[in-house]
Design a protein around this nucleic acid. Sequence first.
DNA 1: CAGGTCATGTAAAGCGTTACATGATTTT
DNA 2: AAAATCATGTAACGCTTTACATGACCTG
Lengths: 178, 178
Amino acid sequence: MPELSATGRVVLGMLALGKQSGYDIKQLVDMATRHFWAASYGQIYPELKRFEEQGLIVGSAEPSGGRARRVYELTDAGRGVLRDWLLSPEEPLFEFRCEPLLKIFFSDAVGPDTRLDQIRAMRLLTERKLAQLNAIGSPPLAGPATALAFGKAMNSWLIDWCQQAEEKLESEIEGRSA
Amino acid sequence: MPELSATGRVVLGMLALGKQSGYDIKQLVDMATRHFWAASYGQIYPELKRFEEQGLIVGSAEPSGGRARRVYELTDAGRGVLRDWLLSPEEPLFEFRCEPLLKIFFSDAVGPDTRLDQIRAMRLLTERKLAQLNAIGSPPLAGPATALAFGKAMNSWLIDWCQQAEEKLESEIEGRSA
DNA sequence: CAGGTCATGTAAAGCGTTACATGATTTT
DNA sequence: AAAATCATGTAACGCTTTACATGACCTG
């Protein structure tokens, strides 16, 4: 069987938490993993179809009221694939793409004020994210709780770094104009 | 003119630092921005061709010995586009995708040892990255210096977080088996 | 002279977001 | 009655990585 795609990993994992519809999975991702692993409908639904064809999940109609709704659950094969991935010792994927940082990198082309602007932009962005994470209640499972704790800690650290960098830059600019 | 693609941004920016070949740009990216903004040959070369067609850059042959080599430099139009992007107030892109964290999130499906394994994997990965960053000398420009300082600080923080999480988990597992 | 680096490029294939389309139901 | 939410899906489009192909030059 082929390797799981990025979206495939989170889809299969979310189904390990219980029967879910595609819509449910998207909600869960947006609430719980978006800050370190996003997914869109455009990938989730086709992935569900593929997984069912491969026998990793089975779907069943479970309308909510008169609304059509199809929920999926893992098969033993699916649980096996999930387990294999979770225990696989392969080099883990780690991607970070940060536009404020790239603008800071090139800021010498337009002057040091941009540096300050970008650090502020990064801080504001991060403060919003932290607020979202703080609005989430304590997850009952240890895994999600650890991931949430990480998210809060990382965003707090980022904010602190920005604040310190801002102060340093502000005093530099003050000193320069004096 | 259309928005700059992710690779377009770093290509144009690198050309603001001086004449570069596609190969040079790739080297610079791999050395200096890879940890927060990667790019591959498969995007760099086509992007250079497009930029030249659009009049944002001009290329010229500058062989190194007998080796064919084509270097590019910004035109005024190109400098304008770069400047517009650098000063644009649009919501900056911020992406983070971390597989160890996703495995931690789903770790309840296979047991708490996985949590410890993944945190260790994340720490090892990060230690390697930090070592790479520490091998880079002080950049002469303020922008690259700030970006480098950020990279070092973030990776150091990450390692600290992992260490603390590991200790906590180890003592939990000890307590559980006692 | 073999292996590494310099150097340019392309093709295929997959991934992913965005936007759109549709329609029922629930809330205001 | 309108707006938001639940729910499923697809199509287009662009981006990116990966792999490959080619060849000159330099180093041990």
